[in-house]
């Protein structure tokens, strides 16, 4: 029996706009093993950020979680009161956002922003919180925390700001860290730096992570399990090595081809035809079928189940 930090089953999240219902997450099943990284990959609008916000119960209105269960440390997050949820958010589950400039308050010193979390969740005194914040700043790689503590976000570079966010996210020693495109706004060199730092912290604190990105390349070295998301559903889930060795879903294959292939004898990149559908105009049947090269009649009428192929591989496709 494997030990899971979080188990999401049959999650539905929808937005209710006028008389229209737009379902952004549709029957999502996802489990993360303790101490492992789950990489959630998807293009814009595929629902990956909505998955993160659902776990945190931060879906902005008119959106609502309309069904399913999210079990975290033995509790169903969806049945907790708002007050109980506040104790988990930022405390047991930490979150890092994509844009470090907007996630930090521009008029508050960065040290204060770290201390705040500690004072709210751990009930520390101001002095004690400050001491711990300095320690955290050192942990995320600042070598002069006593000076950094009093700086404002605009005085830091993008990578440094992201490190401050990481410090805030890990301040209460969460057991799960959700990172939503944490390196997308950064340069490759800084990106590598941040990813290595995250790995170190994870190992040191025995954390698990949900890592959301559109970048398959990162997952190759960083993730343990990978989930490919499309139109609010996971189309394929697999251990990272198996996935890159042999991607199964036509969408996964298309993604990998469009990034990695182009041998010297080929003149053009292989592409996935068509475009990412709007969630308000999803097709019948399999949501990927209009772009699929292996499309069959059946795909156009009924949506395939999420099928277990064994060895940790799951797929939503009639080819298997």
């Amino acid at each position: 029996m494997k030990d899971y930090i979080i188990e999401i089953s049959n999650l539905y999240t929808s937005f209710f706009i006028d008389s229209q219902v737009i379902t952004v997450i549709s029957g999502l099943d996802l489990v993360i093993e303790k101490g492992k990284v789950f990489g959630l990959i998807g293009e814009s609008g595929s629902g990956k950020t909505m998955t993160a916000l659902s776990i945190m119960r931060l879906i902005p209105p008119p959106g609502k979680i309309s069904g399913g269960k999210i079990f975290f440390e033995g509790k169903n997050l969806l049945s907790l009161t708002d007050k109980e949820m506040e104790d988990i958010r930022g405390n047991r589950i930490g979150m890092i956002f994509q844009e470090p400039m907007t996630a930090l308050n521009p008029v508050i010193q960065i040290g204060e922003q770290i201390s705040e979390t500690l004072m709210v969740h751990k009930g520390l005194s101001r002095a004690k919180a400050k001491e711990q914040s300095m320690e955290l700043l050192r942990k995320v790689g600042f070598d002069n925390p006593d000076k950094r503590y009093y700086q404002y976000p605009h005085q830091l570079s993008g990578g440094q700001r992201q490190r401050v966010l990481i410090a805030i996210a890990i301040s209460c020693n969460p057991s799960l860290l959700i990172a939503d495109e944490p390196t997308t706004a950064l340069d490759v060199a800084t990106e590598a730096h941040i990813l290595l730092l995250l790995k170190e912290i994870m190992a040191h604190h025995n954390m698990s992570m949900l890592f959301i990105t559109h970048n398959l390349n990162i997952m190759k070295r960083f993730g343990d399990t990978i989930g490919i998301m499309y139109a609010g559903r996971i189309l394929e889930e697999a251990p990272v090595d198996d996935f890159f060795h042999e991607p199964l879903h036509p969408y996964s294959r298309g993604l990998i081809d469009s990034i990695f292939a182009l041998r010297p004898d080929e003149k053009r990149l292989k592409v996935i035809p068509g475009f990412v559908p709007r969630l308000s105009e999803l097709p019948e049947g399999c949501k990927f079928h209009p772009r699929c090269v292996y499309v069959m009649d059946r795909c156009k009428k009924e949506e395939p189940e999420f099928k277990n192929l064994g060895n940790g591989r799951w797929i939503r496709c009639y080819l298997f």
Binding site: E43, I259, V271, V276
Partner: peptide, 14 residues
């Protein structure tokens, strides 16, 4: 652009 669209646009440039 999205990853699956990037390849399309690069092919268009080619």
């Amino acid at each position: 652009l999205d990853v699956s669209i990037q390849a399309q646009i690069i092919n268009l440039f080619l």
